[in-house]
Simulated scan of single mutants.
Amino acid sequence: MEPFFKIKIGDSDEFNITDKVPGITYLGVDDASSSPQFTNNYQDLSGKDGSFFVGQTFAKRTFNERFILASRNWEDYQLAKHEIYKLFGRRELIRVRTDVNNAKVYFGYVNPFDITPIQSGANYANFTIPFDLPKPYRYSLYRSDSPYTFQQSGWQFGMNLPSHPDSVSYQFTTNNFKVYNASDIKVDPYFQNHDLKIIIKFNGDSLKIHNKTTDTTWAYNESSDGNHTIIWDGQLLTTYLDGEQVNGKTDFGYISLDPEWNDIECTGANSVDITFSFPFIYLI
Rank of each mutant, 00 (worst) to 15 (best):
N126S: 05
D145L: 01
A80S: 06
G89A: 05
L133H: 01
F88Q: 06
V96T: 05
L133F: 09
I118D: 14
G89H: 01
V96G: 09
S120I: 12
N111V: 00
K81M: 04
K135M: 05
Y109N: 09
T116H: 15
S120T: 15
P112W: 09
A80P: 02
Q119E: 13
R90M: 05
G121A: 12
L93R: 11
P130K: 04
T128L: 10
G121Q: 12
F107Y: 15
K81P: 06
T98S: 05
I115N: 14
I115H: 14
I94M: 07
L141C: 02
N123D: 00
D114P: 00
Y139R: 14
L87S: 00
N102L: 11
N123T: 10
Y85C: 02
I129C: 10
F107E: 15
V110K: 03
T98E: 03
E92M: 11
L133K: 02
R90G: 01
S120G: 07
Q119T: 08
R143I: 04
Y124M: 10
K135T: 12
I118G: 07
D145N: 13
I129D: 04
S140A: 08
A80H: 01
V110F: 08
R97H: 04
P136F: 05
L141I: 15
N123K: 02
S144E: 05
N101M: 07
G89N: 03
N123Q: 06
R95A: 11
Y139G: 12
E83H: 07
T98N: 10
N111G: 15
Y109T: 15
Y124D: 03
H82G: 14
P117W: 05
V100N: 02
P117H: 07
Y124T: 06
Y142Q: 04
P136E: 13
R97L: 10
I118A: 09
K86A: 08
R138Q: 14
A103C: 04
R95H: 02
I118L: 11
I84D: 09
V110I: 09
P112Y: 15
V110A: 05
T128D: 09
V105Q: 10
N123I: 04
A103W: 04
N126R: 10
A122V: 00
K86G: 00
D99W: 03
V105I: 14
Y137N: 03
T116W: 09
F127L: 03
Y139I: 10
K135Q: 08
L141H: 07
N126E: 12
P117E: 09
Y109H: 14
K81N: 13
S120D: 15
D132V: 00
I84H: 04
Y85P: 00
K135P: 00
Y106C: 10
Y142I: 00
G121V: 11
Y85W: 12
T116M: 14
R143V: 07
K86I: 01
Q119S: 08
G108Q: 10
A80C: 07
L79A: 10
S120A: 15
A122L: 05
V105P: 12
R90E: 05
P112F: 14
N111D: 14
K81G: 12
P134S: 04
P117Y: 09
S144H: 01
Y142G: 04
N101E: 08
Y106F: 12
D99R: 00
N101I: 03
S140T: 07
L133E: 03
T98A: 03
N111Y: 13
Y106I: 02
Q78R: 15
I115W: 11
